[in-house]
Design a protein around this nucleic acid. Structure first.
Length: 156
DNA sequence: GCCAACGTTGGC
DNA sequence: GCCAACGTTGGC
């Protein structure tokens, strides 16, 4: 049984189109610098599925689905001083942050905007829809996953 | 650009 | 351990 997740990315930083153009349509998910989100990354297993969400976008929306193809490993960007994700408290000897690799599974024919998800029956408890929710890596319940896949016109 | 809702830092 | 100050996220 795969687990389900949601990954946020600002399209101005890395969009689903960027992922589609990436070699093997695969990328490492670097730059998570929040402990709760990191712990969720650590919980991911190969074969898990995740929604790709565009935050700070117009409109903010779920735009695709990705597969987890590599479980958590140290985020090397954290010890590269020139990286925007540099963290002096992390080191190669003692890594503080992790990343996973994800591969594009599908781009939704029609993005599901945040607004369109509000009010959908069965999504009342979804983390994404919580007021003030900022978590950039979050678990999605199987029931929520199926509802959203169905809304997207795909198979559950 | 505004600002609510966080999470982190650091003085005490 | 408390909490004020500060920084960030992200919808609007």
């Amino acid at each position: 049984m795969p687990a389900y997740w949601l990954l946020k990315s600002e399209p101005s930083t890395f969009s689903i189109e960027d992922l589609a153009r990436s070699p093997k349509r695969t990328t490492c998910w670097e730059g998570v610098r929040n402990y709760q989100a990191r712990n969720f990354l650590r919980s991911m297993a190969v074969g898990d599925l995740a929604f790709f969400y565009h935050s700070n976008a117009d409109p903010p929306a779920i735009v695709g689905i990705v597969d987890v193809v590599k479980a958590a490993y140290p985020d090397s960007y954290a010890w590269q001083p020139e990286s925007r994700y540099f963290d002096e408290k992390s080191s190669e000897q003692n890594p503080r942050w992790v990343m996973v690799d994800v591969r594009l599974n599908k781009v939704l024919r029609t993005p599901l905007s945040l607004e369109s998800l509000r009010g959908v029956k069965g999504l009342e408890k979804m983390e994404l829809l919580r007021k003030g929710s900022r978590l950039s890596v979050q678990p999605v319940r199987e029931s929520e996953w199926k509802i959203i896949v169905r809304l997207s016109g795909g198979k559950a």
